[in-house]
């Protein structure tokens, strides 16, 4: 019994060491590719948000895109929102946040994104996954038929988890980078 325990501990230590080793070995080119993959997921999220928010999107398509957006996120991810007038964080689940976005009571909604984006370093966390934060800025414009307009700019700090995974496809072992989004901090920005 104790031998098995020792063996298990040894295997565990080895797997920890090897995972730390393999993480340390990621070349700059590979890191760049992972960064750009993470950025692509953020762009996808931006597009999905624009589609869900747009009043021209058919209901069924918006619902489908909500499902697709949820697939980008890790389970239990939350959106933490604060405004200029209310600086403490309000927490929402991703689905209620997106459904709220779809149901906004404007006749026209236009969501666009600033060109600017900021990518943090990817940091290794104790479970062997990498975590990073990508910051983007969103323009929101809602118009009612009576001509009233609401505009704001929000900063979105989006958690990105990157994990090396393997799967078997057609008899081949495929090594892939699983990029999942996590918690999102939404801050209203002063003009």
């Amino acid at each position: 019994m104790s031998k098995i325990k020792i063996l298990l501990v040894a295997v565990f230590c080895f797997s920890l060491a090897s995972s730390a080793f393999s993480q340390a070995q990621i070349s700059p080119e590979r890191k760049r590719a992972i960064d750009s993959l993470a950025i692509e997921k953020i762009r996808d999220l931006s597009k999905y948000i624009s589609i869900i928010g747009s009043k021209e999107t058919p209901f069924s398509e918006a619902n489908r895109v909500i499902e697709r957006t949820l697939e980008l996120f890790a389970d239990d991810s939350q959106i933490g929102v604060s405004s200029l007038h209310r600086t403490e964080i309000q927490y929402y689940g991703v689905r209620p946040y997106l459904e709220h976005l779809m149901a906004l009571n404007y006749d026209r909604v236009n969501i666009s994104w600033y060109n600017i984006q900021y990518i943090s370093d990817l940091e290794l966390q104790p479970d062997g996954r990498y975590v990073g934060v990508i910051t983007i800025y969103q323009r929101f414009e809602g118009q009612s038929d009576d001509g009233l307009t609401y505009k704001d700019t929000t900063k979105k700090d989006i958690t990105v988890y990157v994990e090396r995974k393997h799967t078997q496809i057609g008899g081949k072992l495929i090594g892939f980078w699983d990029v999942l989004l996590g918690d999102v901090r939404v801050t209203e920005t002063t003009k």
């Binding site: 590719a33 980078w177 990029v179």
Partner: peptide, 23 residues
Amino acid sequence: PVLIIISQENGVKDYDRPTTIKK
């Protein structure tokens, strides 16, 4: 399955998460 290569180094291919053609 649809596999997307994101980078190749020393003959090792790195992929994005596999998806299906419909998706």
